[in-house]
Design a protein around this nucleic acid. Sequence first.
DNA 1: TTGTAAGCGTTATCAT
DNA 2: ATGATAACGCTTACAA
Lengths: 348, 348
Amino acid sequence: MAVTIKDVARLADVAPSTVSRVIANNPRISEKTKRKVKEAMEYLGYHPNFNARSLANRSTQAIGLVMPSSADHAFQNPFFPEVIRGISTKAHEKEYALYMSTGKTEDEIFDGVVQMVQGRRVDGIILLYSRVDDRIMTYLQQQQFPFTVIGKPFKNADCITHIDNDNYKASQELTEYLISLGHERIGFVGGNLNLVVTIDRLLGYEKAIRDAALDYKDHYIVHEQFLKEGGQEAVKELFSLPDPPTALVVMDDLMTFGVISTLKELGLSVPDDISVASFNNVMISELSTPPLTSVDINIFQLGYEAAVGLLDCIQTCKLGKRVVVPHKLIIRQSCKPKLEGLETKETV
Amino acid sequence: MAVTIKDVARLADVAPSTVSRVIANNPRISEKTKRKVKEAMEYLGYHPNFNARSLANRSTQAIGLVMPSSADHAFQNPFFPEVIRGISTKAHEKEYALYMSTGKTEDEIFDGVVQMVQGRRVDGIILLYSRVDDRIMTYLQQQQFPFTVIGKPFKNADCITHIDNDNYKASQELTEYLISLGHERIGFVGGNLNLVVTIDRLLGYEKAIRDAALDYKDHYIVHEQFLKEGGQEAVKELFSLPDPPTALVVMDDLMTFGVISTLKELGLSVPDDISVASFNNVMISELSTPPLTSVDINIFQLGYEAAVGLLDCIQTCKLGKRVVVPHKLIIRQSCKPKLEGLETKETV
DNA sequence: TTGTAAGCGTTATCAT
DNA sequence: ATGATAACGCTTACAA
């Protein structure tokens, strides 16, 4: 049996409540007994039982993390480790631990959240993604349970604390960059259209295209899943068009790897035959061949601020803050100017 | 105030203990009351309080995960999401959740583990790495707390349940593959020498080199940190030797990206000027340019089996099993035969 | 088959 | 400044 507060109390010759006060660093306790108790704790190797504390306290010192279904392989995206690193950093400052429910399907994940919330396993929750019509978000709102969202809520954005980039603007800028290189036929390779981030980036792209008085063509827009499976088809179709794009805006660095790989199969090379620009600027982007031009969205900070926001929620029960994390275009070697009059070689 | 077991009991007109039995699915309870209680639970929207249950039960239904310090960026390695996906899958089958302590430095992480253990936050722990002389492992052994290790414990391997690849053999095979392509000057780019996996792979490499009666040269062996920072130097040195290697065995796909990028700076291209082979076969390996020849170590299964082993430990309190997850050489395009008499061009 | 009551290890509310 | 004592919500002997 582990050593409890009572054992400490007995050894220090005080009441259990006194020991509890010492732990909580209650100011009105004499230095003398404080020392005495601490010695006893040290001697016995005492460590507080978190469950007992949570029960009495109704606070767990843990934050729940909700990821997209690990079934779709979004999981493998380096975005997640990095955003968690950000969350973890802030959490640690306040001595919070992280809690993840397990579960593959939609329903399992939802049940996991319910368990976290109703089972009082966590003090608050961070949603690591934002989708159109998300049950979980609706549920958390109903429950008035503290939570923050990474990304922009599809609706009620002004009463949900969320941390986001200005993806609309970022996408617009990225597209404008390609336009400034002389590209006129620019495709968009998006991911899951249920994700709000996909929508925002698509809209930003459209804005830039229209502002530049270029044709906004539906068939320049394809959506592959974040990773390669199946997505290859979409890209291949794009390049079997009579007027294939000369540049591509891609949702995500990881997807870009898939795109580049597919293009290579088609005999097209980046950036010589086609320019590619994307988002996230994960570490490997810099190391890839060619190094990717990418919008750095400050993933770490996204996570850090989400934790800041959540801890705020937990303390003050206030919701509705919007934090915008700045982005920055990082220009590397995956884009080249479109030379006037020099047509991209037609696909096979 | 949340709805408790008492509320349910009152509504169903039974004793709290009966409700508890229904939850636990106790066989000796009449179908009638079982139904009655379940209805009441449904009606009130009852959910058990996990802390209370843990306290009474001394079981948390949570598994603690210990990662290497997130300070060194090992974290970004896709190995971790994938191994966690494996763990998560098994954990979910048995309705366990995952718990991660936060903390950057060695000491913080150690304290986190102590809190998990002594604070009864988890039922068992999985170490996601294995190092030489690890305090945490020593501590867990002393405490006789259920844990499993991914990788091979440096010592006491036979009394610690661990899940590992046969890294020695894998490395030997990978090196032999390079030798079979005609390479005679083969370098080894390792990572942190405190990691047991590094040591095993280095030894396997050495074995293959010696078996083939090639020179085992110390200066063909460099150790860069897992990610690029600083590591560039080591690789550069390697290629300023009078007799630079024509092929490289690299610890890890992610490191390979760094290596390839550095080589490109030196004007060397893979696989034309130099062959590179590595380990892990993370998803991007297939999508990279060139696609990497890599040993698939079944990361998912590594995680899955670690969870299996841990849950076993928790139930039976038995330790000391060793599970070897099979590996498989995946040949792609990062290696080329060394042509006889055709010297690699000297570095600048 | 079900109820009663004593824990589980804390914190919190009174007293003193 | 400290001590009793009652929660916190659940499980589990032991009784019935």
